[in-house]
Deep mutational scan, measured.
Amino acid sequence: GALPANLDDMKVAELKQELKLRSLPVSGTKTELIERLRAYQDQ
């Protein structure tokens, strides 16, 4: 599914939920979580 547009405004817990939905690792800082989601979306 498409990512929420406001990733930077989301809480870390919400970002981790998005990562879990995509079976991605949820470790790292908020910035790393956002980068991981964006990289996944670009595939």
Rank of each mutant, 00 (worst) to 15 (best):
P4G: 14
T31I: 12
T29W: 01
A5S: 08
A2M: 15
A39N: 15
R22Y: 03
L33C: 09
M10Q: 03
E32H: 04
Y40S: 15
D8H: 11
L24K: 03
D42Q: 09
K11D: 10
A5M: 15
A2F: 11
D42L: 09
I34V: 06
L7F: 14
N6G: 11
L33P: 03
S27R: 07
P25R: 04
L3K: 07
G1Q: 04
M10L: 06
K16P: 02
S23M: 07
T29P: 11
R36V: 04
L21W: 05
L3Q: 04
T29G: 08
D9H: 12
L7N: 00
P4N: 06
L33Q: 08
R38V: 07
A5D: 11
L24W: 01
D9G: 13
G1E: 04
K16E: 09
L33A: 05
E14K: 06
L21T: 12
D8P: 14
M10V: 00
L37W: 03
E14T: 08
A2E: 13
E32S: 06
I34C: 08
L15C: 00
E18H: 03
L15K: 02
K20P: 03
Q43G: 15
P4V: 15
K20Q: 10
V12L: 13
L3V: 12
Y40W: 13
E14F: 05
P25A: 05
I34S: 07
A39R: 14
A5G: 12
Q43S: 10
L15P: 01
A39M: 15
Y40P: 14
P25D: 06
L37E: 02
I34L: 08
G28M: 00
E35W: 06
K11R: 09
K20A: 11
Q41T: 13
K30Q: 09
T29V: 05
S23L: 10
K30L: 05
A2R: 11
T31Y: 06
S27P: 09
P25K: 08
M10E: 00
D9V: 13
E32M: 05
S23G: 15
V12Q: 02
P4H: 12
P25L: 02
P4F: 05
E32N: 04
R22T: 05
R38P: 08
Q17S: 10
L15D: 04
K16S: 11
P25E: 09
E14N: 07
E18F: 06
N6Q: 06
P25F: 00
K20E: 13
Y40K: 08
G28C: 01
K20D: 09
S27G: 10
L19R: 00
S23P: 00
V12F: 10
T31G: 10
R36Q: 06
D8W: 14
T29N: 05
D9N: 11
P4C: 14
V26Y: 10
G28S: 00
G1L: 03
A39Y: 13
V26S: 10
N6A: 06
L33E: 03
V12I: 07
A2P: 10
R38E: 12
L3F: 14
D42S: 10
A2W: 08
K16L: 03
D8C: 13
D8V: 12
D42P: 12
L24A: 05
L33T: 05
D9Q: 12
N6E: 11
A39P: 13
L19C: 09
A39K: 15
T31C: 14
V12E: 12
Y40G: 14
E18I: 00
A5F: 10
V12P: 03
L15F: 02
L21A: 11
S27D: 13
G28E: 01
Q41Y: 04
R22W: 02
E35Y: 13
T29Q: 13
Q41G: 15
N6V: 08
K16T: 10
K30T: 09
M10A: 08
A39F: 08
T29L: 03
L7T: 08
K11T: 07
E32L: 02
K20Y: 15
L33S: 09
E18S: 05
E32R: 04
L7P: 04
Q17T: 08
K30H: 06
T29I: 04
D42M: 10
V12N: 01
Q41D: 15
L19Q: 03
E35L: 11
P4M: 14
R36N: 04
E18C: 06
P4R: 14
K30G: 02
K11V: 09
K30I: 07
L37T: 03
K30A: 03
P4W: 12
L3E: 10
K20T: 08
R22C: 07
L33M: 12
V26Q: 13
L33G: 06
T31Q: 08
V26E: 13
Y40R: 11
A39W: 12
L19A: 10
E14Y: 07
K20S: 12
K11I: 08
G28D: 01
I34F: 10
P25T: 04
Q41F: 14
R36S: 05
E32G: 01
P25M: 03
Q43R: 15
L7C: 07
K11Q: 07
R22A: 09
D9T: 14
E35K: 11
D9L: 10
L15N: 01
L21G: 09
R38S: 08
T31P: 09
Q17F: 06
R38H: 06
V26R: 08
K30V: 02
L21E: 12
Q41L: 12
L21H: 11
L19W: 00
P25G: 07
D8S: 08
D8R: 12
L19Y: 00
K16R: 07
K20F: 07
